[in-house]
Nucleic acid binder design. Structure first.
Ligand SMILES: [Zn+2]
Ligand SMILES: [Zn+2]
Ligand SMILES: [Zn+2]
Ligand SMILES: [Zn+2]
Lengths: 157, 157
DNA sequence: CCAAAGACGTTATGTTATAACATCTAATGC
DNA sequence: GCATTAGATGTTATAACATAACGTCTTTGG
């Protein structure tokens, strides 16, 4: 079981590459590296933290290196930006475009992405009621995850 | 009718001062100036735009001047931060704490704050279903407001 | 081969936000 | 009144987040 995570990671990266190909785009090495970091992270990652990781293998990497990769991943639906944290997370289910609802733990910083179509529908309904047509939505919730709320101390930063 | 806006503004500022007093805090001159700018703005305002306005009357003002005022206003519920724009808006109804839903027009940049308790409840329910306890929530919707959708050209930036 | 498009390298800069410490002011208790 | 103290502000510097601009390289299709 030692390499279970690695195996899942490879599987996810392959699926992401296929998803890109389906869209007529390419998951290049740099994009793959950034996505791999996001997939491996416990919570979200900041752009400059990603940059620091990338620089371990590619010392000449600069901010545009990682921001370009992030832009690509977000546009392709492979990752999401957490606006309230200026941080990024891998999407949990990029093959099924959705309106994610992000649960962000203030204590262990873990992020859980939910999808609730009825919630999104209600949102669109509220907006329509004011003559507003929705192009994009962002729902971020801060609080405590189950572990942290139950007094677990292992997840603390 | 020429001074209707001014009158509303003074009324709102008075109400805000009373709201602060009720909380054992003070709406100082600087805080009042920032709030007045937010109340008078058509859409949201960025911190450094607020700073530029403040500096017209108080040339020594620096970033902490405006960020401190904004922190106070947001904490007191008198203003909200739009995380997706790094910008700020006055709250439409600070005397009735709520979970605002922000409709942000991509064309004229106007912001409409709605309150939908059922939406907030659904959100909390989704979170609870995953063992997550909600401390704060942020819902931001981008799109086109009624005027802009209908082809009005007056509101363009 | 050649042209065009996409990706990447590189430098510099723009934008957003806070740390840290000094000073001032207002409220409290004596 | 006067010291104490908490809150607010002044001031300088820097941290953190993000993009502009331009050059080069690689891939791909004619
Ligand atoms: Zn997702
Ligand atoms: Zn947690
Ligand atoms: Zn509000
Ligand atoms: Zn509009």
């Amino acid at each position: 079981m030692k390499h279970a995570h690695t195996h899942d990671l490879e599987h996810d990266l392959l699926a992401a590459a296929q998803w890109c190909a389906k869209r007529g785009e390419k998951l290049t090495d740099q994009r793959r590296e950034v996505l791999a970091l996001l997939l491996s992270a416990q919570g979200s990652m900041k752009a400059y933290d990603l940059l620091a990781e990338i620089q371990k293998q590619r010392p000449t990497a600069a901010p545009p290196t990682v921001y370009r990769a992030l832009d690509f991943l977000v546009t392709a639906g492979l990752a999401h930006k957490l606006e309230s944290k200026n941080a990024f997370v891998a999407c949990c289910d990029f093959e099924h475009p959705h309106h994610g609802l992000m649960l962000i733990c203030d204590r262990c910083h873990k992020v859980t992405e939910l999808s609730d179509e009825r919630l999104a529908a209600r949102l669109a309904e509220d907006a329509a009621g004011h003559g507003f047509s929705v192009a994009a939505q962002d729902i971020e919730v801060r609080g405590l995850c189950r572990n942290c709320r139950d007094g677990d101390t292992k997840g603390a930063a």
